[in-house]
Structures are given as C-alpha cells and as structure tokens.
Amino acid sequence: MTSLDSNTLPTPSDGATAPVVLITGGSRGLGRSMALALAAQGSDVVFTYRSQQAQAQEVVQQIEALGRRALAIELELGQGQGMTARFAAFADTVREALAQRWQVAQIDALVNNAGIGVHASVADTTEEQFDLLFNLHLKGVFFLTQALLPLLRDGGRILNLSSGLTRFALPGYAAYASMKGGIEVLTRYLAKELGPRGIAVNTLAPGAIETDFGGGAVRDNPELNRFVASQTALGRVGLPEDIGQVVAALLSPASGWVNAQRIEASGGMFI
C-alpha cells in the first residue's frame, strides 16, 4: 500500500501495477474523454453507464486499443429510493472485479462525473426535476463516495465535477447550480476528513462544452455556440478533450500536492 505521505498515482514506469481509476458516467461526453485521456496516460479504467451498454462497450474497446484494461458496469445514480443498498452492491461488484481482473484490492482514484442538465427557471422548476438533480448530483455523489471509501487506497485521489455555473449565473440553471455548489462544499469536507489517509480531493468545474449535455444546446445551436465563444477569453467553446486532458493532469503524479481546490476549466468564460 502506498505510504500516507505519497499522494501520487503509481505509473507503469515506476515498475508498479497500472493505476485503476473509477469514473461515473464514462460511456459518453466528458466521461468518455476522461477515460480515454487517462488510458493514454497509462491508467486502467472502470466506469459506469446508465443504459447504453453498446456505447459503453465501444469505450472499453477504445481503451483496450490504447493498451490498457477497462471494465464498464451498469449503475443507476439518479434514483433516490434504495440508494445506499444499491451502492453497497456496486462496491461489492467493484471489489470482485478488482480481485479477479487486476489482482488488487483497491482503486487509485474516483472521478464523480455522471450528471444531467435541467434547464428551467426557478418559477418553473418542478419538485420532480429538483429531486432528480439532487439525487444524481449531490446525494448520489455523497453516498457513492461513502460506499467506495474502503476501496480507495491511502494516498489516492477523488475528483468531483462541478460547473462554471457556480461562479457565474445564467437564468434557468438555479437548481442544477445549487447542487454543484453543494459538491464544492462537500469536496472541502472530504479533503479535510480524508487528509489523514493522504487522499487529495478536488473539484473540477468545466465551462460550456460541446457535448449532448442539456440536449446538446451548446454543440448544436450555432447562435448559442457563438455567444459562448464571444464570452470566452480563448475565443471558442470547450471540447470534451479539453476536459479529459485536465482530468488526466489533475490525477497525474505531478499534481499530488493540489488539494481541496476548485479548478475551473472554461477557457476564461465571463472574466
């Protein structure tokens, strides 16, 4: 087991087993980009998907083509009822997979990425929408992390996904951004409580990215795309690969001293 004062992921060049990273929502969008970037960096990847098994298996094949090992596991994160029991069963599945496929007992990093977007004003947000966002983006992250803590090695990493919308406000995202604000607070508490185990915990807040998030509005609406680009210092909208590379950098050995921070990757939106 890695010593408590060494919060760096082991790499194959060290002669150690390749690090194993668990990503929620890794079959598409930002999660897929993260998985591929981490694999290119030398990590093996376990990731969850909600329903698109064929899409998930394509990502597994892409990771294997990079010379790394991968496993996709189905997991429903947004359903509030029976959440802790479901996550306990998922942790058991991960534990068994680690033992059988990797001959290890723990993962090296957890990336809480899975999420959806709901666009509705405060006046129009329904209780059902609010509960879905809460279960997926805050309650789910809290209790899934809790369930996986015994499987995270001392000296490992946790990276929680937030949003640029916690810094700047755009009408229609009050409920979503409120959950992400909670994630940023949770990150600091996790960093404090897990510090004695040498586990670094950070928040990554992407800006507007060309994915299918929120119905693909940023990607598919030319007017919105141009507006976002005009409000971004680097003059364009973000791509999934931009975020994947940041995740790989934050989980690299070189970033081991970064802890309890909110890192925004937005190209300089609304500055």
Rank of each mutant, 00 (worst) to 15 (best):
L4F: 15
T11M: 15
G15H: 02
A18T: 02
G25K: 04
G25L: 04
G31N: 07
R32Y: 03
S33E: 04
V45Q: 03
R50C: 13
R50G: 09
Q53N: 12
Q53V: 15
E58D: 14
Q62P: 11
I63D: 00
L66I: 00
R68S: 07
L71A: 04
E74C: 13
E76K: 11
E76H: 11
L77I: 11
L77R: 09
G78P: 03
M83K: 10
T84Y: 08
A88I: 03
F90S: 03
A97D: 08
Q100S: 15
R101D: 11
Q103G: 15
A105N: 10
D108E: 10
N112Q: 12
G115V: 08
D124Q: 10
E127L: 13
F130T: 15
F142W: 13
L144F: 00
A147M: 05
R153S: 12
G156W: 00
F168H: 14
G172L: 04
A174E: 05
A175H: 06
A175K: 09
K180W: 05
G181L: 04
T187H: 00
K192M: 08
A200D: 02
V201R: 00
N202D: 11
P206D: 07
T211F: 06
G215S: 06
G215N: 03
Q231D: 09
G235Q: 08
G244D: 01
Q245W: 06
W257G: 00
Q261D: 00
I263P: 08
